[in-house]
Nucleic acid binder design. Structure first.
Lengths: 199, 199, 199, 199
DNA sequence: CATGAATGAGCATTCATTCAT
DNA sequence: AATGAATGAATGCTCATTCAT
C-alpha cells in the first residue's frame, strides 16, 4: 500500500473495468453466479464495492457485458455460416471454427453451462438461446428424419461437453479437442449422408 | 377452522416429508437451488419454515435426500452393469435402461444439469460424479483410442441433453427419447466395433 | 442483559408489533420518514432489523399499518357526517369531533404534515387524500361562491395547524385547541350564512 | 462533438450555478429533498456530480443558497412591515404583498411545506422560523385575546395552503389567489376590529 | 408435529463526498 | 470549469437457522 513506483497501483489505472470483468468471470465460473458476491469480487481487486458500481450499473450488467464481449466471435461465425450454401463441407467448417471459438470463450461457457438456471433469468438467456438456435438452423436440416436432427444436435453438445466434462479422459486439451471435434464431425457427416446420400 | 370432514388437513398428515421433497425439487428445477428459499417452499406447502426443520436438518439435507431417493434406480443399474460381461450387447442394454431411468428422474436431472455449480459444492457432487464415473467405466474401454472414448461419453451426454434441450426438435417426448436413444446406441456401437472389430 | 425476573424481556413478548409501530411513529415524526432507518428503530427496541421484517414485510408496510390503525376514528367521523343533513349544525359538530379526533392522532398528523413529499409516494397518499376530500365534501357546498369554499377549507387547515405550528402562541394545549376550534367554527359559520342566509 | 455553432454548450456557459439551483429546486419540490440525489441533478444537467461540487461545497449548501436567493423579497417585506405603524391598513397591505411574493417563491414554498421534517435539520430551519416569526409579530398583537391571535395565524396559513392544497377548488390560480387573499384579509380584519374596535 | 418469534450474517445497491488531473 | 475514478458509510431487505412452547 502506498508504494512509489512499483506499478502495483499504476498498472491498475484505466483498466479497472476490464479487471472487474476478468475476476467476475473467473469467480462466476468457479463458484457460480449466485454464490459470488460483489464484495468478493471487489476484495479480490482490492477496491471497494462502490467502485464496481462506478463501472457497471448492476451485477447483471457485469454479466451481460461479459457475455457480449466474449460472444462476438460466435456471432460472427453464425453470420458467416448463414451466408454459405448448406453443403456438408460448410457444416464441417462450421464445426471446425466453432470448436476453435469455444477455446477462447471457455470460461464463459463453463459459467453458462454450470449456471443454466441463473442464465435463464438473466437477460442473456434469450440472446444465448437465439445464438444456439442460429447454429442449429445451419447444421440441422428441418426436413431430415428426427434421428438425424438429433445427431446434429448431439454434435454441438459433444463440442460443449468436451471442454469441461471430458477433462479426465485426456489431460492434453489440444488432443481432447481434436478427438471431440472428430466425433462431432462424424455425427454431422452421418446425418448429412443418410439424408442426402453420399455425394 | 377445526373442520371435521373437509379432509384438506387430514390428507396432509404423515406425508409432509414427502411433500417437502416434491415441492423442493419442483422449485429447484424451475428456478435454481440458490434462488429457491425455504420460505418459498414453506409457503407453497402452507406450513412454517420451522416445520421444514422438523423434517430436515438443513437445506442441503433436503437436497441430499432428494438425490438419494431418486437416484437409487441408477445405482442399481450400474450395479447390474458391473456384473455383466463387457460386450456390446451389455452396453446397449445399459443405454436402454439408462434412458428409461432418466425418464423417471427427469426433474432431478434437470436440477442437476442446470445447477452444476451448486451441486459441486454440495456433498452430492462427489457421489454423483462417482455414479457417472461408474457408468463411464462400463461403457468406456480405457484401452480404446481417445476418439472412441469420446464417442461413448458423447452417447451419455446425448441422452441427458435429449431430456431438456432438444425439446423443440420434437414435441412427443416418447418419440424424442427413441431417436435420442438410437443416436446414443449408434455412438456406442461404433466405438465398440472400431475397437474390437465387428464380432 | 440476561435479567431473571425484572420483566424487561418478559414484557416484550407478544407486543413487539405494537412496540415497533410506536417507536416508528415517534421517530418518523421526529426526524422524518427518510431519515429514520430500520436499524435505528430496531436498536431503540433492542431487537435486530430482521425482527422488524418478521412483523412487517417492508418499511412502507409499517407506515401503512400505522396510518390504518390511527386513522379509523376519522374515517368513522366522515362516515357519520355523510349520513347527516347538510345543516350548519352538522358542520359545526363535525369540526368539534374532528378537533377531538386530531388530539389522539397527533403524532401521525405531525408525521404526515412534515413528510408530505414522502407521503405522496407511499400508498397512503391517495387514501389520505380521499379522506380529506370526504371531509371537504361534507363541509363545503360546491355551489357556494369560491370565497366561501376557501373559508371552509381554511377552517380545516386551521385545525391542523393548531396542533403543531401554533405551539408558541399558547402553552396549554387544551386552551389552544379551544381557540383554534372557535376560529374554525367562525369560518364555517360565516361561509354557511353568507351562502344560505341566517336561518 | 466540438461543434462551433450549435449553441447547446455555449448557452450553458457561465450560468451553471444558476442552472443547478433551478433543477435542484424543481426536483426537491417534486420528489422531496431526501429522495433527490445529486446524481439525479447532475444527470438532468448533463454534467458530472463532481461539477456540482465545483459550485457548491455540499448538498445542504445548494439548499441554503436556494433559500437565501428566493427569500429576499419576503425579508424585505418584513423589513418594510416593521417600519410601519401597527394599523389595520398596514396589516392588510402586508397580506397583499405577501400573497404577491408567495407567487414567485412558489416552488420554494412547496419544497418547504412538503419537507418540513428535513428543513428543520438544515440550517435554514431556524432562519425560516425567524422569518415567519417576523411576519407574525407584525400581524399579531401579543396583547390580544388568544382567539384573535389564532385568527391572524390562520390568515397566514390560509395564504400558504392556497398555493398547493386548494388547487382542486378552482383551476385559475389568479382567481384562487384572490379568493384566498380575501379570506385572509377578513380574518385579520376581524381580529383587529374585535381587539381595537372598528375605527 | 408444528408454530411464533427472533437472530446473525450477508447481499445488492445508493449516496454524499473527495481528489488528482 | 469540469471530469474520471474511487471511497466509506449506510440502507432496505433476505436467508438459513434456532429454540422455547
Amino acid at each position: 500500500m502506498g508504494g512509489t513506483m512499483d506499478g502495483t497501483k499504476q498498472q491498475r489505472r484505466g483498466n479497472t473495468r476490464q479487471r472487474i470483468q476478468d475476476v467476475a468471470l473467473e469467480l462466476f465460473a468457479e463458484q457460480g453466479y449466485e454464490k459470488t458476491s460483489l464484495r468478493e469480487i471487489a476484495e479480490r481487486l482490492d477496491v471497494t464495492k462502490a467502485a464496481l458500481y462506478y463501472h457497471f450499473k448492476t451485477k447483471e450488467e457485469i454479466t451481460v457485458s461479459l457475455f457480449e464481449d466474449l460472444t462476438k466471435p460466435l456471432e460472427n461465425l453464425i453470420e458467416w455460416g448463414r451466408g454459405q450454401p448448406g453443403t456438408l463441407e460448410t457444416k464441417r467448417e462450421i464445426l471446425r471454427r466453432y470448436s476453435e471459438a469455444l477455446k477462447d470463450a471457455q470460461p464463459l461457457f463453463r459459467f453458462m453451462q454450470e449456471n443454466q438456471a441463473t442464465v435463464r433469468e438473466l437477460r442473456i438467456g434469450d440472446t444465448f438461446k437465439d445464438r444456439v438456435r442460429g447454429l442449429r438452423d445451419i447444421l440441422i436440416d428441418t426436413e431430415a428424419p428426427l434421428v438425424e436432427q438429433v445427431r446434429c444436435f448431439s454434435a454441438v453438445f459433444t463440442l460443449h461437453a468436451g471442454m469441461f466434462v471430458m477433462a479426465d479422459l485426456e489431460d492434453d486439451p489440444e488432443k481432447r479437442r481434436a478427438a471431440v471435434l472428430e466425433v462431432a464431425m462424424d455425427l454431422v457427416t452421418q446425418a448429412h449422408e443418410s439424408t442426402h446420400g453420399k455425394s
